[in-house]
Design a protein around this nucleic acid. Structure first.
Lengths: 199, 199
DNA sequence: GTCTATAAGGAGATAGAC
DNA sequence: GTCTATCTCCTTATAGAC
């Protein structure tokens, strides 16, 4: 998020509290007090609690996963598929482990079944772009006879599903021990996956 | 759940509303009105909202996954491992798709990051017994040279993770189309997994 | 843009009649 | 075991002063 002006501060504070207590569990009062202003001051920037929630979602929709993790030097590693996958996963987990992304994922899991205004928040929606990228990658690998001939969509699901569960399962604390566990499990997953698909 | 006496009715209604709106989002008033009694009548059965929540959790802890899906005729299928895994997954998904279990899983996902009293609600806790069973099964299969020599714990994680994500990802609606999608994806997962581990 | 003040209603919970 | 009545606090949101 950008400068710590009040409008942005409301957004980041709201994300923090929503991700801790849920949308219903975190109040405008709670948000205002955390910032150090009155509730009424909030309404100078957002006309309702729902609008704050929508604004949070808009910020996250604005950035794509490709921009975040598919760097040029990573693309070059495609000639060494196993190395590529390992680096790809490290970048992905690292992205999913940033403070704001963690909060957003928590919010996503908590509010995926509740309807807040006209908002749709779903795991499928969150993973759609990543899966699409993986599908493309595995499709290419398959074409070049680097991996077995399996439906790239199934490969994309098989590759991403355990990673997402690993990340979400260890999201309660954010100490070093926990994040190391996540990287360790993710790495073991890549090894299993690579052995399953390599030719 | 048992007879529809008021005490049980409070529990099942609370589970229903908690799983729809979250713990904070569903009020005692809301629960009472759904049953058709006053809020004060609730307090004749449970001394607080928190106690209702704890009671729901206790009911679910009481039943083990083994009792639910590991039937004798399924065990007999162990001589045909692929058939066994396919039937095992169908039973598991079927178990995860019952009305109350769906509600509980939704509640689990929604409240895994919030602290309600002294309650601990986690995906790891929910999956621990299933993973343990799978670990045992793969350990046996490995010993009898039916599958490749891979750490049974990793196999258990690889086997269960995509299944759980599949089930939770398609949990918003409960129409036939959605549940068929879940079975289809679960079946594809078993096929991929079996091809990855078989000798 | 933030403040005080206040409205209007919902929340969890209790007392006591029936 | 359920009811009415009530308490106290918290909720979202608005009006108008500074």
């Amino acid at each position: 998020m950008k400068q710590p002006n009040t409008k942005q501060l409301i957004l980041s504070t709201a994300l923090d509290l929503f991700s801790k207590h849920g949308y219903a569990g975190a109040s405008i009062r709670h948000i205002a007090r955390s910032i150090g202003i009155r509730e009424s001051a909030i309404y100078n920037h957002y006309k309702s609690k729902e609008e704050i929630f929508s604004a949070i979602l808009s910020e996250f929709k604005a950035v794509t996963i490709s921009e975040k993790i598919l760097s040029d030097d990573l693309i070059e590693d495609l000639v060494n598929p196993e190395k590529f996958l390992k680096r790809f996963v490290i970048k992905l987990i690292s992205q999913w482990s940033s403070a704001t992304e963690r909060k957003f994922i928590r919010l996503l899991l908590m509010e995926q079944f509740t309807k807040i205004g006209s908002t749709e928040l779903s795991v499928s929606g969150y993973l759609i772009e990543l899966r699409s990228i993986c599908k493309m990658i595995f499709s290419e690998m398959s074409k070049h006879n680097i991996i077995k001939k399996v439906d790239p969509e199934i490969l994309a699901n098989q590759f991403t599903a355990p990673l997402f569960l690993i990340r979400t399962e260890y999201m309660t604390n954010d100490d070093v021990k926990e994040i190391n566990k996540v990287y360790d499990l993710a790495n073991k997953h890549v090894e299993f996956f690579w052995n399953a698909v390599k030719l």
